[in-house]
Design a protein around this nucleic acid. Structure first.
Length: 564
RNA sequence: GCGCCCGUAGCUCAGUGGACAGAGCGACGGACUUCUAAUCCGUUGGUCGGGGGUUCGAGUCCCUCCGGGCGCGCCA
């Protein structure tokens, strides 16, 4: 038992209640329904703290009225007197609603405080070694604004997986071996020589600025190849710098070239051939991916002898496994969804488990400025970069804006809204809640009010609906984290923290923490601290800062004009 | 034609098969001698795109239709 993490309080009480329900069912002589004994926190307060619909399917099975079945179960349940249970009601069509005494929420508070920074963590992925690849924008230009979505989502997902016990490796794949880089090099070289880039090259203005620095660095007799290599390295350092500004750091920047240099691509081809998964047709070598459920077969080696992106990507993903990661997750834009099955087919052909890599697809971001969608194309040149945005707006605003929305829906990133330091920005709303919690403790200590150890604190005074409301949200938090991790849905944490901030502001307004009642003050100080922990932990998962102090905004919109 | 995603309040979006579908913004009306009013409270707001089906129970699962986005290269 040493070192075992404390169990989430919701799990403890839920297991106790489910066990009691099971026992009650057995005593009455009902068998457990196929779906098991469901128990969940109801949406409405009136429906108690926990609710079970178990009587409904059972009634169907035995051919009795649901409410009658529920009554029998409840009778036994009440006789068992499970912990914290205050009363049990039958409601609606036959729901069993269990109302608990506030004591169970007081236990929750103690757990939150005891766990501190660890509160919310789970062990669902303990022992897992996960390689998470995200962003992986081509090293031919700066990250554009929409790419910020993958930065924010990828980093938060990495945090989530780690919070479930996995060892997570953040990886960025550099496509530095393809003809895109040649095109980029030619374009930069053209700028260097004062010419326009080739028609199908990169037209972006950033190459003009880079060409000037290239000349300053390497002088006047640079070759095209030198320009390409210098430019490539410069872009990578720009990427690292911009990602650093938003607080994301990759463990590995993986160069595609190294795969070719080590002969890994050739080995993949040889293995697919010997495994009988490749065939020749029209002078090209094909992967028989239809054998693994792909819609059509895919080319591995073109008739000109050059390997395809897919072929190289197979070598890359095999290399990830070779480096010791036992599960691979890639975050891709939805426009690449057609490649998922091909890659998975190839890896399966190479002997890896079905479904590797797991690909998390995210819908596109429409960047809007002045009411119009800004097309993001490095080649066409009309881009708004992530760095541009970070010049104007706090990284936290950027991150939370991207994280509040499910990646299953296309997002509109309105620069006019985001760059405006708006009063109703959810980031400030949430951060303000944290700053308020800290402010309470600060004020208390300034006034000589010392928070005593929680073990010596009587939490019974915490009975106000606002107080219980906060604790209910804290009680579900570990489950919410586990679920967000499992569903690869960091936005659920963003919505949790926004909801929790709302509850905290309500508490702050209605429940004065520092007051004349010593016992009430002590218990509320601990509730404020538990709330701070919840806010800080959730924000940490999102990669958003949790400031101790926030400057009051200058209110220049409401001048005191009534001087008459 | 095939595949993936989406359609929920005026707008932007939440919503692991459970009860009367929620939040923010907007609009309207209130609350600062108090631990920070970047806050709170109230009112206004809905054929969950349409139609079938499965289920004791469907915004959620299945089928179909409509509408929108994105893919279906010996490009990367």
């Amino acid at each position: 038992m040493a070192g075992r993490a404390p169990r989430a309080p919701t799990l403890v009480i839920r297991e106790q209640l489910v066990a009691a329900l099971r026992a009650a069912l057995a005593e009455v002589g009902f068998s457990e329904p196929a779906g098991g004994v469901a128990l969940e926190p109801p949406k409405h307060r009136d429906h108690g703290d926990w609710s079970s619909p178990v009587a409904l399917p059972v009634a169907k099975e035995v051919g009795e009225k649901p409410r009658d079945v529920a009554a029998k179960i409840v009778e036994r349940l009440e006789a068992m007197r499970p912990p914290h249970v205050e009363r049990i009601e039958i409601a609606g069509p036959g729901f069993i609603n269990i109302h608990l005494a506030p004591t169970w929420l007081h236990d929750v508070l103690r757990v939150v405080v005891a766990e501190g920074e660890a509160f919310g963590r789970g062990d669902a992925l303990a022992g897992g070694r996960i390689n998470l690849e995200f962003v992986s924008s081509n090293p031919t230009g700066p990250l554009h604004a929409g790419g910020g979505r993958w930065v924010a989502v990828g980093d938060a997902l990495a945090n989530l997986l780690a919070a479930q016990g996995a060892e997570v490796h953040r990886e960025y794949y550099l496509n530095d071996a393809g003809n895109q880089l040649d095109t980029f090099g030619a374009s930069l070289f053209a700028r260097y020589e004062g010419r326009e880039p080739p028609e199908d090259g990169y037209q972006g203005e950033y190459l003009v600025e880079m060409a000037a620095r290239l000349r300053a660095d390497l002088g006047d007799s640079v070759t095209e190849e030198q320009a390409r290599e210098w430019g490539y390295l410069d872009i990578v350092s720009q990427l690292e710098r911009d990602l650093g500004r938003i607080g994301v750091h990759f463990d590995t920047w993986f160069s595609e070239r190294t795969l070719h240099e080590r002969g890994e691509v050739e080995k993949v081809i040889a293995d697919l051939r010997s495994g009988g998964h490749a065939f020749e047709n029209d002078g090209a070598l094909w992967l028989r991916s239809t054998a693994f459920g792909d819609q059509r077969d895919r080319v591995l080696v073109k008739s000109d002898g050059v390997t395809t992106y897919l072929c190289n990507d197979l070598a890359y993903h095999r290399d990830k496994f070779a480096r010791g990661w036992d599960h691979l997750i890639d975050i891709w834009g939805a426009d690449h969804h057609g490649q998922v099955k091909s890659l998975q087919s190839g890896l399966e052909a190479l002997g890896f488990p079905v479904g590797e890599p797991e690909v998390v697809l995210g819908q596109f971001v429409n960047v809007v400025r002045g009411g119009e969608v800004v097309r993001m194309s490095k080649r066409a040149g009309a881009i708004v970069t992530l760095a541009d945005i970070l010049d104007e707006v706090d990284p936290d605003v950027c991150r939370l804006t991207f994280l509040l929305q499910s990646i299953d829906t296309a997002q509109t990133f309105d620069l006019d809204v985001v760059t405006k330091q708006s009063m109703d920005n959810p980031v400030y709303y949430v951060q303000y809640a944290h700053a308020r919690a800290v402010s309470i403790e600060r004020t208390a200590s300034e006034r000589g009010v010392t928070r005593l150890p929680i073990l010596d604190t009587n939490l019974a005074p915490l009975t106000h609906e606002r107080e219980l409301d906060l604790l209910r949200a804290l009680a579900t938090y570990p489950d919410d984290v586990a679920e967000a991790s499992e569903l690869r849905a960091p936005h659920r944490i963003a919505t949790w923290v926004r909801d929790f901030a709302s509850r905290f502001h309500g508490f702050y307004r209605d429940c004065r923490v520092i007051n004349d009642d010593v016992a009430l003050t002590q218990s509320r100080l601990w509730l404020a601290e538990a709330s701070r922990i919840g806010l800080a932990n959730a924000l940490a998962l999102l990669g958003v800062g949790a400031p101790d102090v926030m400057e009051r905004l200058d209110d220049d919109t409401e001048d005191e004009a009534d001087l008459s």
